[in-house]
Each structure stands twice: as structure tokens, then as C-alpha cells.
């Protein structure tokens, strides 16, 4: 039901949205493409981790071949050069459509260190994935830790 209260709330939400747009502008074409590329990269991580996680959680029976394939994909993804995905001015303060905090561009050494930790965890997962479920479980957990370390430091919390 539309009441005066919902009207007020709607107006407040619209004003807040307008404020956000003022603070961060619509990205230009090249920036939007870079944001889409890096988010797609994240989606590919998530898809492959999903296959491994389903086994680790016991939702799907362990399948050594499928586990190895997913881990190999993750290793390939980690090895890709992502430099062009992160152009200057594509942070969450500058443009809409991203949760990438400006800190990423201010603390490159920190980002690189966390990237290295992820690569290390994925390398260990690649070793463990095809062995058995007991080897897979902690290795997926370690990758989760590496994901979280970066998200904690460099991703804007969800609104």
C-alpha cells in the first residue's frame, strides 16, 4: 500500500541515490569494460571454487578428475596478468558499479603480497585436489582465507 510514509522513504532513498551518483560518476566505456573484465574473472574463480566446495561440503560426491580440473582452472586464472583490469580511476569513490576501494591503488605492495598468498594457496590446492577428499578440504579452506584477506582489506562492504 502506498502511504505517505512510503512516499517519504522513497524520497529519502532517491535523495541518497542522487548523493551517491554525485560522489561517484558513471564510468566511461573503457573503465566499464575493465570493471566488467575483473568481475568476470571473479565469477570464474567462484564457479570453479563452487565445484570444489560442493565436494568439500559433502553436497556432491568426491570426483578426483573434476576436482583436479577445477583446481587447474583456478591455477590458470591466478597466473593471468590482471594489470589492465585495474585502470586508475576505476575505484568505488570515482565510479559506480564497483566495490573496489581506492586503497588498492594506494597500497600496491599490499595487494601484490595478498595476490602472492592466493597464488601459493591455489598451488597447494592444485597439489591436493586430485588426491582425496581429506586433502581437498583444508586446501579449499586455505584458498578461502586468501580470498577473504583481500576482500577484508580492499572491498567496500555491501550496502
Amino acid at each position: 500500500m502506498f502511504t505517505f510514509r512510503t512516499f517519504l522513504l522513497g524520497t529519502a532513498a532517491a535523495a541518497a541515490a542522487a548523493g551517491a551518483v554525485l560522489a561517484a560518476s558513471e564510468p566511461d566505456k573503457a573503465t566499464a569494460a575493465a570493471i566488467k573484465a575483473r568481475q568476470s574473472h571473479m565469477t570464474l574463480y567462484a564457479f570453479n571454487l563452487g565445484a570444489l566446495g560442493a565436494m568439500a561440503k559433502g553436497e556432491r560426491p568426491y570426483d578426483a578428475g573434476a576436482a583436479q580440473a577445477a583446481a587447474d582452472n583456478l591455477a590458470a586464472l591466478v597466473s593471468m596478468n590482471q594489470g589492465a583490469y585495474w585502470p586508475a580511476g576505476s575505484d568505488s569513490d570515482s565510479v559506480t558499479g564497483t566495490n573496489a576501494l581506492p586503497k588498492i591503488w594506494e597500497d600496491f605492495a599490499g595487494v601484490a603480497e595478498k595476490g602472492k598468498a592466493l597464488a601459493q594457496a591455489v598451488a597447494e590446492l592444485q597439489e591436493a585436489a586430485g588426491m582425496d577428499l581429506d586433502s581437498l578440504r583444508p586446501a579449499v579452506g586455505a584458498v578461502g582465507k586468501a580470498c577473504g584477506a583481500c576482500h577484508k582489506a580492499y572491498r567496500k562492504p555491501k550496502e
Binding site: 567462484a46 563452487g50 566446495g53 568439500a56 561440503k57 579452506g141 578461502g144 580470498c147 577473504g148 576482500h151
Partner: peptide, 30 residues
């Protein structure tokens, strides 16, 4: 099972991962 796995690894059922302060909570609970 999904909640317990999230608290262990930070992975949501969609395999996004915890960020912000919850990432620290997961570190503790792991």
C-alpha cells in the same frame, strides 16, 4: 551445512567470500 561452511572458509553458497569485519570473524571461527 552452508552456514557452517561459510563460518569455516568465508565462502557463501555462491562462492563469493566474506569481506569486511565478517572476514575477521571467519578467521576466528575457523
Amino acid at each position: 551445512a552452508e552456514i557452517a561452511y561459510y563460518l569455516e572458509t568465508g565462502f557463501t553458497p555462491e562462492f563469493d567470500s566474506a569481506g569486511g569485519e565478517m572476514a575477521e570473524v571467519v578467521e576466528n571461527l575457523s
